[in-house]
Design a protein around this nucleic acid. Structure first.
Length: 570
DNA sequence: GCCGTTTTCGGCCCGACTGTTTTCAGTCG
């Protein structure tokens, strides 16, 4: 996806323009950059609707659309190439230090002849910054801290990693005396696939007790700030956590503000201005008079909007749709009736089928599919015919125990490079559910990969396509594939596409889910669990589906197994 | 550079915090 690359260039352009003291343009570039990070794949948009469709992305106008097209077609943006030459590279580099903006970076470069990060570290050692006019001891110290922070390279952490950490901290703070509400805001609440830092909002009658507890937890590496209403810590794992204690009658507006996304909140505030109102984290105001703030619902209502679910708040059309009263009723976190993609000890899973079944029953599922690998995936101990017989017999035995949950005999069968499957039709026929997946030969051309997968979808025994793009967050890009064609083939062949809840997969992702739904494709939310602990990842799949505007009707495994079976029938 | 039920020109989200000043500029979220 080129979106991130273009977003980065736009941000760099904004930096350069800021250095050059250009007004307003930097904000425009930054806003567009943020929009690109969460909107549909620009190449797909361009292919479908041309430059006019790009222009429709909020924050992207004619001129930026043109630049996006140029990048898609040539891999470069000439305006950026031109601007780069007008400003020394070290200036934009210095700006990456937290605390250094365009003004300070330029001043340091000018007065102290700094031409690199190394230079900067040298002058700090020599205490030259502290002696500079408008700088001082503190400034020098803060820049040093900023560099240290940057070196630790705060990479965004997976939602599936951050979520349990946040929950543990929340549980600890909830029991502190005087605490009422505790909730995580920010990208975590929006269920974004990666999280920069954890934001926790609290109402309490005794803020100082909250802050004491918060800053003295055992896994705190460093306390970055500690005041009566705001605290900030760095955990030993390098994750930053911010806590804010909010007065109860401002909780809704604070929650709205700290949940974001930024572009969503800006759009909301603009709407308020039109109505002669002002929204801030402290409330909605008409002149000096506060007219809302206690609940998020009231904040939205003040600008004539229904409540918008956090997962939708990306300024990707949700405000417009909300105005028309046409918001989707999102898939709920307890709407899933069974997990359809789980591995057992038979292949590369940790647990026995009966153990998995018990846990699934406890979750409240009506069915669970044990879908182990096929033989070609050697590292995962794919099952041969003999092992399949044994597994099938075991499942039969468990089902006879009438545990109140149906165990389905399934497989995750490999799609071989030529699009044929790793089991013969004769074997495939015996499964309750067949999931097809690409696990090898990722580097094909788009045409080859698309043809390969479509051939698999056309097999009459295939019911589900696993992790359709193959991406692994922070590790491996998606393979090249024409999703539009996959969608139409899946629809035609009655194959459901997966929303895989593995923390570093989340595949399909939010954007693709929204496209798939538009194309009329059915989806399943699954965990692809390799241990009973992984079964919890269903909420990540659901959260991702919600970010893709999925409703209950779009997700096949919100139905009973009988109904699903009927749908599968080709 | 974006955007339009007050505008195709002239606005552009809002506020806190920090450090350096002595009323504010710069940075951040």
């Amino acid at each position: 996806m080129k979106n991130l690359e273009i977003a980065q260039i736009f941000e760099e352009i904004a930096d350069i323009l800021e250095i050059k003291n250009v007004e307003w343009k930097p904000q425009a570039y930054r806003k567009a950059a943020r929009a690109l990070k969460t909107c549909e794949d620009v190449e797909a948009i361009y292919k479908k609707g041309g430059i006019k469709a790009l222009d429709k992305i909020p924050g992207v106008g004619q001129r930026l659309a043109k630049k996006i097209v140029q990048y898609i077609e040539t891999g470069k943006i000439s305006e950026y190439e031109r601007l780069k030459k007008t400003v020394p590279k070290y200036l934009t580099e210095l700006m990456k230090v937290p605390g250094l903006g365009p003004k300070k970076a330029a001043k340091l470069a000018n007065k102290l002849k700094i031409k690199s990060m190394k230079n900067l570290e040298q002058v700090i050692k020599q205490h030259k910054i502290a002696k500079l006019k408008t700088f001082g001891e503190k400034s020098e110290e803060n820049i040093a801290k900023g560099i240290a922070l940057m070196k630790k390279s705060k990479k965004r952490v997976l939602l599936g990693v951050a979520l349990p950490i946040a929950e543990e901290i929340i549980a600890r703070l909830r029991v502190v005396k005087g605490v009422d509400k505790v909730i995580a805001a920010g990208s975590l609440r929006r269920m974004l696939e990666t999280i920069g830092d954890i934001d926790i909002l609290i109402t309490s009658t005794k803020p100082e007790l909250v802050m004491d507890k918060f800053t003295s937890m055992k896994d705190v590496a460093r306390v970055l700030a500690k005041g009566p209403t705001r605290g900030s810590i760095l955990l030993k794992n390098n994750l930053q956590v911010d806590v804010r204690v909010i007065p109860p009658d401002e909780f809704g507006s604070a929650l709205q503000y700290f949940t974001g996304s930024k572009n969503h909140s800006i759009a909301l505030r603009k709407l308020a201005i039109k109505k002669g109102l002002k929204i801030s984290e402290y409330g909605v105001f008409k002149g000096k008079k506060k007219i809302a703030g206690k609940t998020e619902k009231a904040v939205y209502k003040a600008v004539n909007l229904p409540y918008i679910e956090p997962e939708l708040r990306e300024n990707n059309g949700e405000i417009e749709v909300a105005r028309q009263g046409k918001l989707p009723k999102l898939l709920g976190y307890s709407d899933i009736k069974g997990d359809l993609h789980v591995h057992s000890k038979y292949s590369d899973g940790n647990d026995a089928i009966e153990t998995i079944t018990k846990v699934a029953k406890k979750i409240g599922y009506g069915y669970i599919a044990i879908t182990d690998h096929s033989p070609s995936l050697k590292i995962a101990h794919g099952l041969d015919e003999k092992q399949l017989k044994k597994k099938q017999a075991e499942i039969k035995k468990i089902n006879k125990k009438n545990m109140g949950i149906k165990v389905l005999h399934g497989t995750e069968v490999d799609i071989l490079p030529d699009g044929s499957l790793d089991y013969s039709d004769k074997i495939l026929k015996q499964f309750d559910i067949v999931i097809a997946a690409v696990h090898s030969h990722f580097k094909m051309t788009e045409a080859e990969m698309t043809k390969r997968i479509i051939k698999a979808l056309e097999n009459k025994y295939v019911n589900v396509l696993a992790h359709p793009t193959g991406r692994v967050i922070n590790k491996r890009d998606a393979y090249k594939v024409n999703l539009e064609k996959i969608f139409s083939s899946a629809k035609k062949n009655k194959v459901a596409l997966e929303v895989d809840g593995t923390p570093d997969r989340l595949d399909l992702n939010d954007v693709h889910i929204r496209e798939a739904i538009k194309a009329g494709v059915k989806l399943v939310c699954v965990t692809d669990a390799h241990s009973i602990n992984n079964l919890k990842n269903m909420r990540l799949a659901i959260g991702t589906a919600r970010r893709g505007w999925a409703q209950k009707t779009n997700i096949l495994n919100t139905k009973s197994w009988e109904e699903i079976k009927k749908w599968f029938k080709k």
